[in-house]
Design a protein around this nucleic acid. Structure first.
Lengths: 341, 341
DNA sequence: GACAGAAATGACAGCGCTGTCAATTGGCGC
DNA sequence: GCGCCAATTGACAGCGCTGTCATTTCTGTC
């Protein structure tokens, strides 16, 4: 019925253990034997049973992608990452499980324990804000499960992938300044996300670099959601002298800002410049298309998974790879209404 | 180290096999024994090893979610479905694997074979357009893998979940007609999706019911993507007498229509009414908010998974559950520019 | 050409569970 | 109180692989 390792062994005239060695790319197998075994595997269309491998061996060939499905409004972000991770897992003959966690609910540690206990997970990929949850990280360390992070806040000691977000945000705001804007507002994201901090930081740095004052009234809290962008924008529009440009910490909130602008009868970019961050598909689908920063999520998922694979292979200790950002200058930003000094 | 079934057996004073029976909810276990075993499992925090269960038994407790990541632009749709499926799997102690297939590439059958051969998948959840791919269905039948579908085209013999899409589309177009529209265009979706057929059908039925003529010029082909919506709208705007309302087969294309309208200087809904289908988050984030049909994707994922669970439990033969739709009347539709007759 | 040591291979048990089939127990009629 | 059948439980092998450790086959050396 099913082709087993033993069948391949018999066909090749070697012991099952040797076939196992070839399967697991263990070093001490003579090249000629290796080739014969591989050929037999191929011709017999042999497929190792993950269950048996997991049961007998120490590895499960399973990685879990952990994410917080409370605090991740932009499903496209997660979907793209998942896609990238899956790609790399597939290529490396690993399976991937998706595992939504709820940081707020306090059972997420138990969910993790269950995952490790039941499935013997080999490794974990995490997305923000899980990447920086101390209890979670601690537990992973206790379990001894290797993990790679996407955009973790702590750079030292982290493995995975990141972007120079402060620099990207700074460049974006500098673009606004170059267009002539002086009253630039910022809508911050959810507090425990590194992205929120970095983007705010870049905003501040750009102002400082240009010698512009930092006005706390121009910095309002959002939640990375469209709705929170609307609310934040309304708040800003209520200021006696409202900004000529708004930099929202992500595209969803930027879309909310544009919505609120229309609601108020403001034309973008004539009356107000708007920019976001992430370059989700939505960015090019807004009217006018949104100026933003491209973040290559799919690629980042791949890179994080690749780092994890390195760890699992026992080669090296894993890196925190940095991917380049790129500004996407579109029609939602322009010179401010009245040229000021 | 690890708590095994044998440990639970010893603690309860029964044989491992009896514990196994309890674990698998087999009938012939005395209730008192059952309770004792369950109590021991609980107190010892016993977690069965899926690998061992899969290896020894005939079930793997694994279901795969199959989707085509070529032809599914709306990642939120898939993400929501995945979320729903995952929910139900979790609750039933099943694991879920996600498995993107590419119908176009001809290796997808091999991918499926590998999935079945390696992981001994217990069941499959499919999304359009996979639900109606003959070779795929045939192969699943050959493998004897139970499967549930989300919005399959063939109603008879299918198991899973669906919506009365023709009726929903008809109701939507009737709404336009009631508003006074007479020249209503439709943008069709990708050809091999049932959704495309059903929504077109509903469109036609509404016209017929109202005694309006069917004008082929008013029906243009799209691909469910934003970009294709833009193109289709431009095509329609090029007609000598262009429509006063456009019904796009999904929200993404409707967004494209609105984009194209702005591009041409048309105001929605003053100059043009636009409506979509699906009620993705985007629908409320457009300006003006989009009139559309709500499709409860998450719920549909759950229901399909529940049907699959029924199948896997051996209870009943599985149903094709129908979920209700609901019209979301928002500001993108209004009376046509000039009241006609 | 014999020998040490490395390289390559194999024998065997067992991972944690379930399927099969046999054994035990309990209930009931007479 | 005995026999019979159904309900309940248990013994045991084995799923397909890998870890451990033993064994064989090469190298090169003196």
């Amino acid at each position: 019925m099913r082709v087993r390792l033993e069948d391949v062994a018999r066909a090749t005239g070697v012991s099952p253990k040797t076939v196992s060695r070839v399967l697991n790319e263990e070093p001490s197998v003579k090249e000629s034997t290796r080739q014969r075994v591989l050929a037999a595997m191929e011709s017999m269309n042999y497929r190792p049973s993950p269950a048996a491998r997991g049961l007998a061996g120490s590895r499960s060939f399973l990685v879990a992608m952990l994410y917080d499905n409370n605090d991740n409004p932009a499903s496209t972000y997660l979907a793209e990452i998942q896609d990238g991770v899956l790609d790399v897992c597939d290529a490396n003959r690993y399976s991937m499980m998706v595992c939504p966690l709820r940081l707020r609910g306090k059972d997420f540690i138990r969910r993790l324990d269950a995952l490790v206990a039941e499935h013997h997970i080999d490794g974990v990929i995490m997305t923000p804000p899980l990447t920086d949850d101390a209890p979670l990280l601690h537990r992973l360390k206790e379990h001894g499960v290797p993990h790679a992070s996407i955009s973790p806040q702590r750079r030292e000691g982290s493995i995975g992938v990141c972007m120079d977000e402060p620099q990207a945000a700074k460049a974006l705001v500098q673009h606004l300044i170059e267009l002539g804007h002086r009253r630039i507002a910022h809508i911050v994201g959810i507090a425990n996300h590194g992205a929120s901090r970095w983007r705010l930081q870049g905003y501040k740095e750009a102002l400082t670099a240009a010698g512009l004052p930092y006005d706390p009234d121009y910095v309002v809290q959002g939640e990375f959601t469209f709705g929170s962008g609307v609310m934040a924008a309304r708040e800003l529009f209520a200021l006696p002298q409202f900004p000529t440009a708004i930099f929202a910490a992500n595209d969803d909130m930027a879309a909310g800002v544009m919505w609120a602008a229309y609601e108020r009868g403001l034309k973008v970019p004539r009356d107000l410049s708007v920019c976001g961050f992430d370059d989700t598909p939505m960015a090019t689908q807004l009217w006018p298309p949104l100026t933003t920063v491209r973040q290559p999520s799919r690629e980042m998922g791949k890179l994080a998974a690749l780092q994890l694979m390195e760890l699992l292979r026992g080669r090296g200790t894993g890196l925190l790879v940095q991917v380049p950002y790129s500004l996407q200058l579109r029609e939602s930003t322009a010179a401010p209404p009245q040229a000021q000094g």
